[in-house]
Design a protein around this nucleic acid. Structure first.
Lengths: 409, 409
DNA sequence: AGATAATAATAAATTTATTTATTAACACAT
DNA sequence: ATGTGTTAATAAATAAATTTATTATTATCT
């Protein structure tokens, strides 16, 4: 059985006094979505609404099977209040990470628990319709493997690389050959409301919402993979910019080198401070005669992957360590600019390159001290992400859930 | 007579159902503060509260002498609604811009009209108590010249250069020799609640709120004076960062030069793209034998001021034009980074150097195209500020008013 | 174990806000 | 000029939310 309150979830908040009750119920749902459980008194304080009224709304949400009584709290004086929270399997949300050579699909329930996850699905990202339909095929297959009624899957969130306008559903870097929004095409193929998202933003959202933040409202997530992405959290919300293209940190121009970036320009941060730059540096050095653990292992330097360099560094390979140090320093200089501009509370370094740990973070922090104002950088904690890979599809789920439950408002 | 509702204005919004009416009245005041006038029906729609209830609250605000009936609207069918708005002289707000060699003091009323303004007050900014007390003296003198009762002056906003934490009232660059917040010291000397602000942020706020913005919610204001400041508008609000130190754009490290910036570091944007850089460039060239209108006018190159260079450029002086072009290009490269990071709708270039007009803006825009991603920069309009000087003290007034009237929430 | 203090939840009484109906104001057409 | 359509403001009736009072639950003290 599916809740009859679902119809209100997909529709925009209606105005007018007549919708007051629905708005209150949505607000309560959003509160439960972030706080796990809450008591009637807590909700009453939060929304400045009397206890009987809150009680009435919560009772209705229980009848809608979206909320349930989680029993009494422990400890404290006096009569224990009942705690209420979301019904875990009232609804489900699917998230998809589209990588260049693989897909990852996750499904979470109302309580953010991962119900199912399928990683490393073989896939080849090409900018054509076939590649697009492959994604749909995999998602449909994923759904059909579960016995969940489709109506309970409230949406699918899909992460793509490049420029994405999540508000309109248009993608501008990939699959941009339709007149209608790409999200509509997905919806037709999946039969479920679909929302697009930029991959770094989704990953950032997962990082920001899985225990890393204490109480920070202004934070940055730097995704250092082959390229460099940036997720910006401002006032507790993801920052998008006019069309959702914010965070192109990898392409800020801060070097006077002659390396052509994949964006076509010169001097981009990415040319000196990314995973791509790390590989280039190591292979160039080896081709110029430098010695390394890697020279024994790989006949052709083209076969050296990012993870090989990181492993070699951890085995004390000098060339790899120095190369990581180098990009750490360069990245630190870029991050110093971010600190001067944002005065953030926290910067999280994530992505594959973050696995270099102190080989990366020490020269990085050193460069930050060198290139940013000390009165500003004193405010900023810089940490490496401790999260596992494959967090991006979870981010897509979470972002979708939180949008539909109005958490992100 | 002073309104008895004023006591609610300085205090934080109280929670609980009992304060519902006060909260509603504050919300109505904030609405009037941005929209000039409104009808009962408009307010009812805005807040999803019934017409009779809104009517009751507005009537109370009229009794409080904070709001008055502005008569009927013209045109449209049917009975004309009454429009209501703030009472202009219900209260006043003072704003002070503390420059290095002058002060500017403004006073506005509830409706944002400048009631009084005194510019170019001779003053010397030094980091000592005397210099601080001079400011208080000038403000007190300014107040005493008016017949307004002190209770009607709801606050004083003071702009200082450097690091300011407006939330705590601490200043870290100037007058930072007290244990208590600097704002408290001002309050003791003025007898009026006082709030500190960073000068660029106040100036940005004035620019963002005096007709320049159409409907943009994400915009940047680049203040190019001797140094370079940045005001960041996100989601219609000024962005501060953890301690209010955001926007240190002038000190991002993007050059590999050996010029020592006033912050002590090398490679700052300011060393190549500010008014200070412009003066340095022109005087260096002249000292190296270049010819210019300025060589006749000034015996000693140290006497050349920013405005002299701009005037000379407008008289077609080649050296000055080329120097402006140079800093325009360098500034453009910095702004390109901002575009990549923020994907803003609008960037306003202000400050003295903006008076260079196309000598600055054309190479600047050219550099923006060269150094930022075209798919992102297409979204961004770049304009020169058309506002007069001395807007900063007005910005202080406005920011103060809007804070006290809860507009900035 | 029973009394007591403390808080929670519910019921009843009261207050408050909303809906509906009525009256008022105004423009335009006849 | 008078009627008609349209919207605003107010009054009365109705509905809803809050406050207060009552009952329930639980830990701790005696």
């Amino acid at each position: 059985m599916t809740s009859n309150f679902f119809k209100h979830i997909h529709e925009a908040n209606k105005n007018g006094v007549a919708y007051k009750n629905i708005r209150l119920k949505k607000k309560i749902l959003a509160y439960f979505a972030t706080r796990e459980t809450a008591t009637i008194a807590e909700l009453s304080k939060e929304f400045n609404i009397s206890i009987p009224k809150i009680n009435e709304s919560v009772t209705e949400l229980i009848q809608d099977e979206l909320v349930k009584d989680y029993g009494k709290t422990t400890s404290a004086v006096g009569r224990k209040p009942n705690t209420y929270g979301l019904v875990a399997n009232a609804a489900y949300f699917i998230g998809v990470q589209v990588g260049v050579d693989n897909l990852s699909i996750s499904m979470i329930n109302m309580k953010k628990d991962i119900v199912s996850q399928k990683d490393n699905i073989l896939y080849s990202l090409q900018n054509n319709e076939e590649s697009l339909l492959d994604i749909c095929k995999e998602i449909n297959e994923f759904i059909s493997k579960h016995s969940i009624v489709k109506e309970k899957i409230l949406g699918v969130g899909i992460n793509l690389t490049g420029r994405i306008n999540y508000r309109t559903g248009y993608s501008y870097s990939y699959f941009n050959f339709y007149e209608n929004p790409l999200s509509e095409l997905f919806e037709q193929n999946l039969g479920i409301p679909t929302f697009l998202e930029n991959d770094t933003k989704a990953l950032s959202y997962a990082e920001f919402n899985s225990g890393t933040l204490a109480d920070e409202k202004d934070a940055l997530f730097v995704n250092v993979d082959n390229g460099i992405g940036l997720g910006i959290l401002i006032d507790g919300k993801l920052y998008y910019g006019k069309s959702g293209f914010s965070g192109e940190f990898g392409h800020i121009s801060i070097f006077d080198n002659d390396i052509i970036c994949k964006c076509g320009k010169k001097g981009c941060l990415e040319t000196e401070a990314s995973g791509y730059a790390l590989i280039r540096r190591v292979t160039d050095e080896i081709n110029n005669g430098a010695t390394s653990i890697l020279t024994k292992k790989f006949k052709k330097t083209e076969d050296i992957k990012l993870n090989d360099i990181i492993s070699a560094a951890k085995k004390d390979d000098n060339l790899c360590i120095e190369s990581i140090n180098y990009i750490g320093d360069k990245l630190g200089r870029g991050i110093a600019s971010l600190i001067n501009i944002f005065n953030p509370e926290l910067i999280i370094i994530g992505g594959v390159v973050a696995k270099c740990e102190e080989y990366l973070s020490l020269p990085l922090k050193n460069a930050v001290n060198k290139y940013s104002l000390s009165s500003v950088n004193r405010d900023t904690k810089i940490i490496l992400s401790s999260k596992s890979d494959n967090l991006a599809s979870y981010g897509a789920c979470l972002l979708l859930r939180d949008r539909l439950l109005n958490v992100t408002d």
